[in-house]
């Protein structure tokens, strides 16, 4: 079946962050540590999958001129649900992600997938699309967080890597580091693509 195709396109060839350049706000903001990145990736994947399933299943009965408000309400509903669940079971993670959990509502990836994919395709295809996009988002987020945490704090998943005498390059964990690291990652991907093409 081509469900595998729907799933795998989100991972690399159509990666929502690295290729389509969507959802930058949360990627830049929460990539200060790998733990945060994983938590955020999980929350966004949950919302993506659930919103894709619901929107795909109601795609035939939603009047087309109010579809955007309907999608936003559905997405906001799932965001609130994951917000409450995280607050209940992982309060520490919830506090450190802070305002970026409610802001999943306005993450362009989710509304983008609802509009571009779920509103035109079947439920199972939408499920795999959501899962693939969510994982692609998580991978990009974790890759960025990995570089920022290791270079900027000398830690990985909160564990010190280089001993006490290591002076981390603080700039990486500060806001400028997020922009510059992501810029370099994108340039590196361009380089790889160039090599492949030639």
């Amino acid at each position: 079946m081509n469900y595998w195709k729907e799933f795998s396109k989100g991972l690399l060839s159509d990666n929502p962050v690295l290729v389509m350049l969507l959802g930058m706000c949360s990627v830049l903001a929460v990539s200060t540590s790998v733990i945060n990145a994983l938590g955020m990736g999980f929350a966004a994947t949950f919302v993506l999958v659930m919103a894709n399933i619901v929107i795909s299943s109601i795609r035939k009965i939603v009047p087309s001129n109010i579809r955007i408000p309907v999608y936003i309400v559905v997405i906001a509903g799932f965001v609130t649900i994951i917000e409450l669940i995280m607050k209940a079971y992982v309060p520490d993670l919830y506090t450190s992600l802070g305002i970026f959990i409610p802001l999943i509502v306005v993450n362009c990836i989710i509304l983008g997938r609802a509009e571009a994919f779920a509103s035109k395709n079947g439920i199972i295809a939408s499920l795999f699309d959501g899962l693939g996009m969510g994982l692609g988002y998580t991978i990009a987020l974790c890759a960025l967080a990995f570089f920022r945490e290791v270079i900027g704090a000398g830690k990985l998943m909160g564990i010190s890597l280089f001993g006490a005498n290591f002076q981390p390059a603080l700039i990486m964990i500060l806001p400028p580091g997020a922009f510059i690291t992501l810029g370099c990652m994108l340039a590196f991907l361009n380089k790889m693509q160039e090599k492949k093409a030639s």
Binding site: V62, P63, N65, I66, P69, V70, V73, V74, A76, G77, T80, I81, L84, I85
Partner: peptide, 22 residues
């Protein structure tokens, strides 16, 4: 009116789901 009604029902259903989770 029809569109408003549809939107209202969507909000009500979503609100119900969220209240249940809460």
């Amino acid at each position: 009116i029809k569109l408003g009604f549809f939107l209202l029902i969507t909000c009500a259903l979503v609100g119900l789901g969220v209240s249940y989770t809460n």
